[in-house]
């Protein structure tokens, strides 16, 4: 009993000792690799590392969440039935743009053509084509579903 008194006092400040041990081991490895990662232009590398998290959590995520919210709100409660048919192709097309924007926007076109001997011209038009197919396909599925089962008002 006597031993549990100081432990109870310490525990809320310290937290779980097992978690603490795991985290300290993890930090040792992170630090060993981290000093090597930062050897060079440490400020820019740090900026990229932390900036990636900040840009995602505080810019990209709020942006697409707000866009989705606007879509749902804009649809109104009676027309919500078509929301997924817009949301899905928009999300998929946006995903492709997010991953391939250097090629789609043409910012690496010259280097790509010079390095690989391949044309970099088609990426924008192919992305637009895939986007059109996604939205078109979604519209077709929506039309078929509507025919089979008219939406119930709510």
């Amino acid at each position: 009993m006597r031993r549990s008194v100081p432990y109870r006092m310490v525990r809320p400040v310290l937290g779980s000792p097992f978690h603490l041990l795991v985290l300290l081991c993890s930090f040792a490895l992170c630090a060993y690799a981290g000093v090597r990662l930062l050897d060079g232009d440490w400020f820019m590398v740090m900026l990229w590392f932390v900036g990636a998290a900040v840009l995602h959590d505080l810019v990209l995520l709020p942006l697409y969440a707000a866009a989705d919210r606007a879509l749902v709100k804009g649809a109104g409660s009676r027309r919500r039935v078509w929301v997924p048919y817009l949301r899905v192709p928009a999300a998929l097309s946006g995903l492709l743009l997010l991953v391939w924007f250097p090629l789609i926007t043409g910012r690496v076109s010259e280097r790509y053509a010079g390095v690989a001997g391949l044309s970099a011209d088609g990426f924008l038009s192919r992305w637009l084509l895939v986007t059109a197919v996604l939205f078109g396909g979604s519209a077709v599925v929506f039309a078929v579903r509507l025919r089979r089962r008219p939406p119930a008002d709510d």
Partner: peptide, 28 residues
């Protein structure tokens, strides 16, 4: 993979050491 060399250094050390930093946190 898109030859967009805007990285703050050479790809090999960045991706390699970055992987170990990430892996340390990933294991925990």
């Amino acid at each position: 993979v898109q030859l967009d060399y805007v990285l703050p250094g050479s790809f090999y050390p960045l991706h390699f050491y970055g992987a170990w930093v990430f892996f340390g946190a990933f294991v925990a």
